[in-house]
C-alpha cells in the first residue's frame, strides 16, 4: 500500500473547504478523485504522488532528471562505453 504512481491534476474543486480540497487526477488514462488537503501548493497540471486517496507531494520537475544526470556524470568518470545512446529526457532547468 506504499506503492504509488504519479498522476497529473486536471481539475481542482475547493468548494468544500481546505480539508476537503479535491482534485481529479489522471493516472495514465485512469481518472481518480484525490484529496489535495496536504498539497496546498498543488495546481492544475502538476504531478502528484497519491497514497490511499491523498496526494502527499507534488513531483519536483527540476529534480526529476537527476537520476539521468548522475548517471551521465558517473559514466563520464568511469569512461564507460556507448555515449551515442542518450537516455536522458529533455533537459530540465535547475533550481
Amino acid at each position: 500500500m506504499c506503492l504509488a504512481v504519479p498522476g497529473k491534476i486536471i481539475s481542482i474543486d475547493d468548494s468544500q473547504g481546505e480539508l476537503m480540497r479535491i482534485g481529479k487526477v489522471n493516472f495514465g488514462g485512469i481518472l481518480k478523485e484525490v484529496n489535495l488537503a496536504y498539497v496546498p501548493e498543488a495546481k492544475i497540471d502538476d504531478y502528484v504522488i497519491v497514497h490511499v486517496g491523498f496526494a502527499l507531494n507534488t513531483v519536483d520537475e527540476s529534480e526529476a532528471a537527476r537520476v539521468f544526470e548522475y548517471l551521465k556524470e558517473m559514466d563520464g568518470l568511469a569512461e564507460l562505453d556507448d555515449p551515442n545512446k542518450p537516455v536522458r529526457p529533455p533537459a530540465q532547468t535547475d533550481k
Binding site: V5, P6, K8, F27, G28, Y47, V59, A64, V67, F68, L71, M74, D75, A78, L80, D82, K85, V87, P89
Partner: peptide, 23 residues
C-alpha cells in the same frame, strides 16, 4: 507514462549495473 517509463529504461539500468560492478 511520464515519471514512470523513463525510470524503467533497460539501457540506463544496464549502465548503472556496470557502475556498481566497477566500484
Amino acid at each position: 507514462m511520464k515519471f514512470i517509463d523513463e525510470y524503467r529504461d533497460p539501457e540506463a539500468a544496464r549502465r548503472y549495473s556496470h557502475l556498481i560492478h566497477d566500484i
